[in-house]
């Protein structure tokens, strides 16, 4: 039991909190059809972290997080600028910007010798959830994520009404004096914050999965926005717990003496839940006819 508290509970809590932090902005990204922004954000975190480390020489989570946030903000601006200036569809603009930033990150990492010492690309991609254990105190990621998830939830509660209106009908919202542009930028910032916080704990791949899959599953099965958000939180936490347990114990049940990647497994589970929701939803739609 003690072993569970020390080695399994912290990563499970971190995974759940990361999932919650991502799901909150994820719901609104999905509704405003910007779901892939999460993909872009979590890829540009790498150059931000590398640059922050190179500039300050500090490996502290806060400094790197700040660098990542700056990179995310820069890329969001770049995407908007490229979309308008080149008259591109947002998807193509996103693909151009995030691959460029990611490539820059890899080049910085490889040429400055940072690679292997403090950071490596694989770690950045799929995190290191399993190592976040209780070492005489909670891992710092746990507190940071708890803080950010709470902050995002409070912010969402605060601007709920205008955000919903601006997401549903931006033109009308504009005529009602709602600062649609600011809300949009705020959503981007919230996504970046969630992506950066989650990235440091669980890697970019799980971040993308959590930004999209639970919200998409919930949207298929619910009819109102509050219900969607509650359901998406449920899906997120369920994926996190189920994925972690499967990754950690499924091989043991089969008699294999090792564990699988928890982040990867959680992403897989969230995808499977989405597939299940899609099947249920189309079954329900057919039954209704």
């Amino acid at each position: 039991m003690d072993e569970f508290l020390l080695f399994s509970l912290p990563p499970m809590l971190i995974a759940s909190l990361a999932a919650i932090a991502c799901v909150l902005p994820g719901n609104f990204l999905l509704l405003s059809r910007r779901a892939m922004l999460g993909d872009a954000m979590s890829h540009v975190v790498l150059p931000g972290i590398v640059a922050a480390f190179l500039l300050t020489g500090s490996g502290s989570g806060v400094v790197m997080g700040a660098g990542a946030l700056a990179a995310a903000g820069l890329s969001a601006l770049l995407i908007e600028w490229v979309t308008r200036r080149a008259r591109l569809e947002p998807g193509a603009a996103m693909a151009v910007v995030f691959t460029t930033m990611f490539a820059l990150g890899v080049v910085l990492l490889e040429t400055t010798g940072t690679s292997g010492v403090h950071l490596d690309v694989e770690h950045a991609l799929y995190g290191n959830l399993e190592s976040l254990i209780w070492l005489g105190g909670p891992p710092p990621e746990l507190l940071r994520l708890a803080l950010i998830a709470t902050g995002l939830a409070l912010a969402l509660r605060l601007i709920w009404r205008p955000l919903v209106l601006a997401t549903f009908d931006p033109v009308f919202a504009q005529t009602q004096g709602i600062p649609v542009g600011w809300l949009r930028a705020g959503l981007t910032a919230a996504t970046a914050l969630a992506a950066v916080a989650a990235f440091q704990a669980v890697g970019s791949i799980l971040t993308i999965a959590m930004l999209i899959c639970p919200a998409a599953s919930a949207r298929l099965l619910t009819r109102t926005l509050p219900a969607q958000i509650m359901a998406s939180l449920g899906f997120a936490v369920a994926s996190a717990l189920l994925g972690y347990v499967l990754a950690g114990y499924a091989p043991l049940w089969l008699g294999l003496p090792f564990t699988l990647s928890a982040s990867g497994m959680i992403a897989t589970v969230s995808g499977l839940l989405l597939a299940l929701s899609a099947l249920i939803a189309s079954h329900l739609a057919r039954a209704a006819l």
């Binding site: 059809r33 791949i205 998409a216 949207r219 564990t259 992403a267 989405l274």
Partner: peptide
């Protein structure tokens, strides 16, 4: 059933996650 963007991101993340699980399986 949903916007193509969301479908793309969901598939990207979950397939990639499955790939990483399999890589760790190979490693193990």
């Amino acid at each position: 059933q949903m916007h193509e963007d969301a479908a793309t991101g969901a598939v990207l993340a979950s397939f990639y996650g499955a790939g990483i699980v399999i890589l760790t399986l190979i490693q193990g």
